[in-house]
Amino acid sequence: MATVRRKCFISYHHADQDAVNQFVRDFDQAHNCFIARGLGEEMPGDVINSNNTDYVMAKIRERFLADSTVTIVLLGRCTWARRYVDWEIQSSLRRGQYSTPNGLLGIKLPSYSGSFPERFNQNLSSDFPRIDCYARHMSYPSSTSALVDAIEEAYQRRTTHQNLIVNPRARMSYNRQCQ
């Protein structure tokens, strides 16, 4: 049985552009693990020039999230500090009468600093003993099969774990300082 290639929205901090490009080339273009959607150099898409938060989020939903089913947050050193990452996660987790939220998967890039974006972190379990949660994260994939399995699990959790989504309405209004 052939593996289904899921359309994945890629959320990341532009400081990690080279690592993001490599990830997309390695796993989308070379190994066909998924279909990349988003605003990167290796992904088709137009830049959205506006300072209007609601307009930017509407355009991201319309152009990139509308036909994706999983959001992959590529976690680098300062990803946690980027407001657009917060906005993209918030939009990915939105539920509607006719829409299912995206699955949510974090992948640690080599520059990962140990901090998750707050909205992503809210969808992970910090309880002990561990209780279930909506999002998942992993180290940088060591194989295509590990990545395909993680994407598929995130895809399935869209319906099986939707009740565990934590998605407050307030968004980050500015980028945080990252050293």
Rank of each mutant, 00 (worst) to 15 (best):
K7D: 02
Q29T: 05
I48A: 11
N21Q: 11
F27D: 02
H161V: 01
Y134Q: 10
C78H: 03
Y84N: 05
D28W: 01
E88M: 13
S115K: 10
H31G: 06
I107A: 03
T79M: 11
N32I: 00
S92M: 09
F128Y: 14
T159P: 08
R176W: 07
G106L: 01
Q97N: 07
D16T: 04
V166F: 08
L147N: 02
Q179T: 07
S145A: 04
R5M: 00
S142W: 11
Q156T: 01
A135E: 06
Q29R: 11
S113D: 08
S115I: 13
Q17F: 02
A30V: 12
R6P: 00
T53R: 07
Y55R: 13
I89L: 12
M1P: 15
H13P: 00
H13N: 15
C133R: 14
A15P: 00
S113L: 09
L124S: 04
D46M: 09
D26P: 04
R95M: 08
C78Y: 02
L109K: 01
T144D: 15
G106H: 01
M138W: 10
F27M: 05
I48V: 05
L75D: 01
P110V: 10
K108H: 10
V4S: 11
I165V: 06
L104C: 06
N163K: 09
R77S: 15
I107W: 02
F23V: 12
C133L: 08
I165P: 08
T69A: 07
N123A: 06
Q17L: 11
V73G: 12
Y98C: 10
S92T: 08
R6L: 00
R171Q: 09
R82F: 11
R61I: 05
P110F: 01
V148W: 09
R82V: 04
Q17S: 12
I35C: 12
N123H: 04
D18Y: 08
G96V: 15
V85G: 05
L105R: 08
V24Y: 04
T79K: 10
V85H: 07
R5A: 00
F34T: 02
Y98W: 12
F128L: 15
R5C: 00
Y55H: 14
F128R: 14
I89V: 14
T3E: 14
V56I: 15
V24T: 12
D127N: 13
W87T: 13
V166E: 12
K7H: 05
N102Y: 09
N167R: 06
W87K: 11
Y155A: 15
R136C: 03
R5E: 03
Q162M: 11
A66Q: 15
D46V: 10
A58C: 08
D16G: 05
R119S: 10
L124N: 05
R37L: 14
Q97H: 08
R63D: 07
K7V: 00
Y112N: 02
T69P: 05
Y84Q: 03
D46Y: 13
S145V: 01
Q162L: 07
T69V: 05
T71R: 00
I151Q: 14
V166W: 06
D46I: 10
S115C: 05
V20P: 00
K108E: 10
N51I: 15
R83T: 05
Y134P: 13
L109P: 04
A170D: 12
L164I: 01
S115L: 07
P129F: 03
H31A: 14
R136F: 02
R157F: 06
P141S: 09
P110H: 00
Q156L: 07
I35K: 15
